[in-house]
Amino acid sequence: MEADPDTTPRFVDPADIAALLPTPEPDPRVVSVDLDAVDFTEVNIARTGTVYGLYDPREPDRIRYVGQTVQALETRLSGHLSAPAPRVRAWLKQMHREACAGKCTTGCTPLIKPLREDVPEGELNRTENEEIAWNKLAGADLLNSVISPEVDRIATSRILQDAQITPDDLSHLRAHPSRYVLLLRLRGLMNRHLRRRRRR
C-alpha cells in the first residue's frame, strides 16, 4: 500500500530568495546612525530669540516699544498689527488718522528693528528688561503696558556702574541735599553711554 502523499504546504525560505538577489550598492546620501550609541540626554538644541524695538515711521529714531520674540521679526510685526496691545493700538490709530489726513507721508506701519540678536531663550526676559531700562533712562516714551520692577533695578545698577559709583559714594549721594541734581547728572552720563552704543 502506497503512503499518502505529503500535503503539508511548503514555504520558500526568505534567505534562499535573498541569496538570489544582487547586492545593492550603498547609497552615499544615506547616513547610518547607531541609535543605541547616541546619548540623548546630551542632546540640547538651543533656541535663541531677538529683543526688538518698534519705531515711529514719522521719526525713525524714536523707539516706542521694546519686545522679545523667537519668531522672525516680520512675523512678530504682523502679530502687533493684527492684535495690538491697547496702548500700541491707540498709537497705530493715531498714525493711521494722520496718514489719512495727509499729515504723515511716511506711512502708518511701525518700523521693527533688532536691538539684541541671538539671545538664548532663557535670557530673553532679562535682556528685554535691560533694553527697556536703558531706553527709559534715555527718555524714551515707551508704550509697554507692563514694566517689570526688575527694570528699575537694572537701570539703577547700570547708572551706578557706568558712573563708577562706589558704595561710599552712594551713601553720600543719599545724604546729599542736592542729590536730585546729582541723579540728573548721572542720567546725562547714561544718555551719552546710549548714544555711543547706538553709533557702533
Rank of each mutant, 00 (worst) to 15 (best):
Y55Q: 09
V51F: 01
A37I: 00
T23N: 10
L73C: 09
I17S: 10
A19Y: 12
T23K: 13
D16K: 08
D36P: 00
A46H: 08
D16F: 15
V30I: 15
G67W: 04
R76M: 05
Y55E: 10
D36W: 05
R29S: 09
P22N: 13
T75P: 01
Q71W: 15
A18F: 08
L73T: 05
D34E: 07
A18H: 09
V51G: 00
G53Y: 03
T75W: 04
R76K: 15
P24T: 09
E59N: 11
D56E: 06
S32K: 02
A19N: 02
P22G: 12
Q71S: 10
N44L: 00
V12Q: 07
V12L: 09
L20D: 14
T41F: 11
E59Q: 15
P22C: 10
N44D: 14
D34C: 03
E59K: 12
A18V: 08
T48W: 06
R76P: 07
P60Y: 00
N44E: 07
D39G: 11
V66R: 04
T69Y: 01
D27G: 03
V12K: 00
Y55W: 07
D39N: 13
P22S: 13
R64D: 00
V43S: 03
L20C: 13
T50M: 08
L20Q: 14
Y55F: 15
A37H: 08
P57C: 04
P24R: 11
G67T: 02
P60V: 11
V38S: 05
E25Q: 14
Y52I: 11
T23A: 00
I17R: 08
R64H: 04
P57V: 02
A19K: 13
P14S: 03
P24C: 10
T75A: 14
I45A: 11
D27V: 02
P24H: 12
G53Q: 03
Y52A: 05
V33P: 03
V66H: 04
R29M: 06
Y55T: 09
R29T: 07
E42P: 00
P22V: 04
T75F: 01
V70N: 11
D39L: 06
P28K: 02
A72M: 13
V30N: 06
P60R: 12
A19R: 14
V12N: 02
S32L: 11
L20R: 10
I17L: 14
T23V: 11
Y55L: 15
A18G: 13
T41V: 12
L54C: 06
P22I: 07
Y65I: 08
A72D: 12
E42Q: 09
R62K: 10
A37V: 01
A19P: 06
D61N: 14
P14E: 01
T48C: 08
E42F: 01
A72R: 11
P26L: 00
D13E: 12
P60N: 11
A19D: 09
D13Q: 09
T23H: 10
V43Q: 03
L35G: 06
D34I: 04
L20I: 06
P28A: 01
R64W: 02
